[in-house]
Design a protein around this nucleic acid. Structure first.
Length: 861
RNA sequence: GCGAGUGUGGCGGAAUUGGUAGACGCAAGGGACUUAAAAUCCCUCGCUAGCAAUAGCGUGCCGGUUCGAGUCCGGCCACUCGCACCA
């Protein structure tokens, strides 16, 4: 008996699919379309198991949809601009482009060895000038439409390397390489007006019901729409004013100070003559730009000496410069209500500012409510100590106060968003050049479209400090598109989220030289029906791509008559791949491949012979060495096994633990399927079709199970519940292998069952199933080109059901009863049952609950 | 710190969405075949007590609603993800 030779077979089918263009796709108005998309990878060098899982999830659906008769778009490409290429260039003295393209070639071959059903003719690389040419045109169009503009903003500056650092490159407020304390520096940068679309982005969330609720919630919170009040405080003894924004105008009587951001105009102005304040601001500017760093920092501030008068109480409130007030949100100034906001409370405690309680719990009787060691922030509360707001709930008080403030010209109602405009400028080499020229006379001028793409110079130097484009001797020198006089190019490049915000449209028309994509192609293929990728992209990438789709509509790229401008109809966020961690006796991480199990059950390092201890299961990461190499898995088990394992054990949105033994199990199963067909090949080739109406007993039961399994797969596959599908198919396989095969009926059912197993398994393990189909079932047409197997609904329901009989909620027996038995009969049978009788002996029956086809519960005591 | 999730046997996970908790797989133990090993096949397998029938307990923890809770409600605990220049 031959064993399945996966190495040969997988190569055979991969080249067959390629040479016969099995997965090539074009617009076809006669067929329904389906666009299945996996997030495009960054070509970091090698595939990791997370990629394998991501692409398998998409590939299974894509293959299934094709067999269901859909015209399936399933493309792959490379998100190939970015920081790692520049780091590699510095470390290995190579060119980012060379490094990137070599990685792409290697990883493409890796993906191909997994047997993914991509239309490779549509492959794109975002670092290719033919790709980013259109991106540069988009930016120019955004500029003309008023969706792009330039303003000053802060960056993390490494004073030693003379370079801008990514937040990731800042460790504990210091540059990761130089160790220098990071400074905040103001630079002129390009921004995209995503905030123009705040409302539409919120509204769209209601439309995309096939997204996980958690992602929609996160996006909604990220946009952070809030209605509140901008209150204008005149500064005492001055003609200046401070504008603050608050979402809690109802707590106005509890305000005891004003906090302004260290980067607020007033703070910066005062700092000119105030050394202490200047020093404090400098200190604040020594954290990185992340919101997290600001929020975690100890609350600190400096009294400016300025005072404002409370409009109603007339109290004088001090203005503090406070490190926890963000310049980017609202007006960059807040009023502090220590009793009812935790940050304000900590701040007030530290600087001994008054704490004034103005709301209390709904059931609190007196007017002496006091907080203790933390702020009282419950929203369902009632006001006291607040003059005309006393006795009102927060909601009521808010409305009354807003009206009052408007009438008395204290402030104005305002809607604020946490979302701010998207800064797209990066001071880096390996990115898409911003197509702008600076002319002394005409300022920032967009490059003429006929001069696009603006490409990167190849001869760059990474050893010296600063931005290589800036340092290049000639590249930035050009002429002004308007007047032709000497001018300087923009040396910044785009954020790489720019490329990934529209790549799904480029796939639809990837070789179009004139346009980013043809409108009619986009109209046919959009929107993406199934988008699959990691949760880590839940907010930013997905929000930017949603914004782009709207902006591209408004710039005429997309047909405005399209039904929806949500680019991704359904979203699946997959979990991470985890693995056990290993450490040797010196505390060094050890690769799983280097760990061997000894006979006494302990573990040892294969080379150093040191004892190894097993740690917890964690996300696979290079730093902890708990990684397995997809190449190694494919070589030792084959692609089918790898594909099957990554979708078989866990639901797709949960983390998956990679285990050697789990992969073994899949490998054994696939061999078993092969054997089950091969060993019975004479039956399979000789048995004639039988009339299913005459099946009885076990044969009928298993025949029915085949149809139930097909039905279940049909239900569960489109929901990505591959783990359940595999369990179903395994159950069916177990039943088939237990058949006695002693008559024509059972032999036929066995054959039909194995055919079903082969076909149902095909999207998951395409190579072995194609081979079984051709070699053992002697079929001429590729399984990938064969329509999906159909179930017979007459065999989906049984005549009887098994019902649990409970006494006081505890199952005491199960009974098999006719499916449509009446309530009365069911109750009678249950009460007549011997075991039940024993159980209720000596008790009085109080109540009997009968749920037909489900359960009987007898309440007795 | 803020926002969002997750938690079921030794392990990964099922559970018709309020109705038999543990499907399917992994690991473990026992057996068959074999000179032997591998491979394969069969059996056992939540915990405790019992030869067994069976009984009690059991879905992170505490409490509640219900004839009935893994599922619904309230309060905790632990872990994970995101926080705008990593992708």
């Amino acid at each position: 008996m031959s064993r399945h030779n996966f190495n040969e077979v997988e190569k055979k089918w991969q080249s067959k699919w390629e040479s016969e263009h099995t997965f090539k796709v074009e617009v076809d108005q006669a067929k329904p379309k389906s666009y299945v998309l996996e997030m495009l990878p960054y070509p970091s060098g090698k595939l990791h198991m997370g990629h394998v899982r991501n692409y398998t999830l998409g590939d299974v659906l894509s293959r299934y949809k094709k067999q269901k008769g859909f015209n399936v778009m399933h493309p792959m490409g490379w998100d190939s601009f970015g920081l790692p290429a520049e780091n590699a260039a510095m470390q290995h003295d190579t060119h980012p482009g060379k490094w990137t393209y070599e990685n792409i070639d290697f990883m493409r071959q890796q993906i191909k060895s997994l047997g993914m059903s991509y239309d490779w003719d549509r492959e794109i690389a975002t670092c290719h000038p033919k790709y980013f040419k259109h991106e540069q045109q988009m930016f120019i169009d955004f500029l003309k439409k008023g969706l792009a503009y330039r303003k000053e903003s802060l960056v993390n500056w490494d004073p030693v390397e003379n370079t801008v650092l990514a937040n990731e490159q800042v460790v504990d407020g210091k540059g990761w390489r130089s160790g220098a304390v990071v400074e905040l520096k103001k630079l002129n940068q390009w921004f995209l007006k995503i905030t123009d679309y705040s409302e539409e982005l919120i509204a769209g969330l209601k439309e995309i019901t096939d997204w996980p609720e958690k992602v929609r919630t996160m996006q909604n919170n990220w946009i952070g729409k809030s209605q509140g009040m901008t209150i204008v405080f005149p500064v005492d003894n001055s003609d200046q004013v401070v504008e603050i924004f608050t979402t809690r105008p109802d707590t106005f009587f509890g305000a005891s100070f004003i906090g302004i951001s260290p980067n607020h105009a007033i703070a910066l102005d005062l700092a000119k003559d105030n050394k202490d304040l200047a020093k404090f601001i400098e200190e604040c500017n020594q954290t990185d730009t992340s919101e997290e760093a600001v929020a975690k920092a100890e609350k600190k501030g400096v009294d400016t000496g300025l005072r404002v008068k409370h409009h109603i109480t007339g109290d004088l409130l001090p203005i503090y410069v406070a490190n926890f007030v963000l310049m980017g949100y609202g007006t960059g100034a807040v009023y502090g209500v220590p009793a009812h906001d935790q940050r304000d409370f900590e701040f007030a405690t530290k600087y001994k500012l008054p704490i004034i309680e103005v709301v209390k719990p709904l059931d609190y009787k007196g007017d002496d409510f006091k907080i203790n060691d933390e702020a009282y922030t419950t929203y369902e509360s009632v006001h006291f100590n607040s003059q005309f707001l006393n006795g009102l709930t927060v909601v009521e008080a808010k409305e009354k106060m807003m009206t009052y403030m408007e009438e008395h010209k204290i402030g104005r109602r305002e809607t604020n968003y946490r979302l701010h405009d998207w800064g797209v400028s990066r001071q880096r080499y390996w990115g898409c050049p911003v197509p702008i020229v600076y002319c002394d006379e005409h300022g920032a001028v967009p490059v003429n479209s006929s001069d696009l793409p603006i490409t990167l110079p190849d001869d760059v130097e990474f050893k010296s400090a600063g931005n290589p484009l800036e340092n290049h001797p000639t590249w930035k020198h050009t002429t002004c598109p308007t007047c032709g006089k000497p001018a300087i190019r923009e040396t910044d490049t785009f954020d790489t989220f720019f490329e990934s915000s529209w790549y799904f449209l480029r796939y639809l028309d990837p070789r179009n030289e004139e346009q980013a994509f043809a409108q009619d192609k986009a109209k046919y293929w959009m929107n993406v029906d199934h988008y699959i990728g990691g949760v880590e992209h839940a907010v930013m990438h997905l929000l930017y791509a949603r914004f782009f789709n709207l902006a591209l509509r408004d710039c005429g790229y997309l047909d405005s008559s399209m039904e929806s401008f949500e680019p991704f109809k359904a979203l699946l966020t997959q979990g991470m791949i985890c693995h056990e961690t290993y450490k040797d006796e010196d505390g060094n991480w050890v690769f799983p491949d280097d760990v061997i199990k000894l006979n006494d059950g302990t573990y040892q390092h294969a080379k150093t012979r040191k004892k190894v201890t097993i740690g917890r299961v964690e996300k696979m990461s290079k730093s902890k060495k708990n990684v397995v190499d997809p190449d190694f898995i494919i070589r030792s088990y084959g692609a089918d096994t790898a594909r099957m394992f990554v979708v078989s054990d866990s639901p797709p949105d949960r983390d998956l633990e990679w285990t050697e033994s789990g992969a073994d199990g899949c490998w054994r199963f696939l061999n078993r399927v092969w054997r089950m067909v091969e060993e019975k090949s004479d039956i399979i080739q000789n048995i004639a079709d039988q009339d299913s109406a005459s099946f009885t007993g076990e044969t009928k039961k298993i025949y029915s199970l085949i149809h139930k399994t097909i039905f279940a797969v049909e239900e569960e596959l489109p929901q990505f519940q591959y783990n359940k599908i595999i369990a179903r198919i395994r159950e069916l396989t177990n039943s088939l292998s237990s058949m006695s095969l002693d008559d024509d009926h059972s032999q036929y059912v066995y054959k039909f069952g194995m055919e079903a197993v082969t076909r149902l398994l095909n999207p998951i393990t395409p190579h072995i199933t194609e081979e079984i189909w051709e070699v053992l079932f002697k079929k001429k047409t590729q399984l990938s080109q064969t329509p999906w197997i159909e179930y017979d609904k007459n065999f989906l329901v049984d005549d009887t059901v098994t019902i649990a009989i409970q006494v006081n909620g505890k199952v005491r027996n199960t009974l098999e009863v006719p499916k449509d038995i009446s309530k009365e009969d069911l109750e009678k049978i249950a009460l007549d049952d011997e075991k039940i009788k024993n159980n209720i002996a000596g008790k009085t029956i109080r109540k009997v609950i009968v749920v037909p086809a489900r359960i009987v519960n007898i309440v007795a005591n």
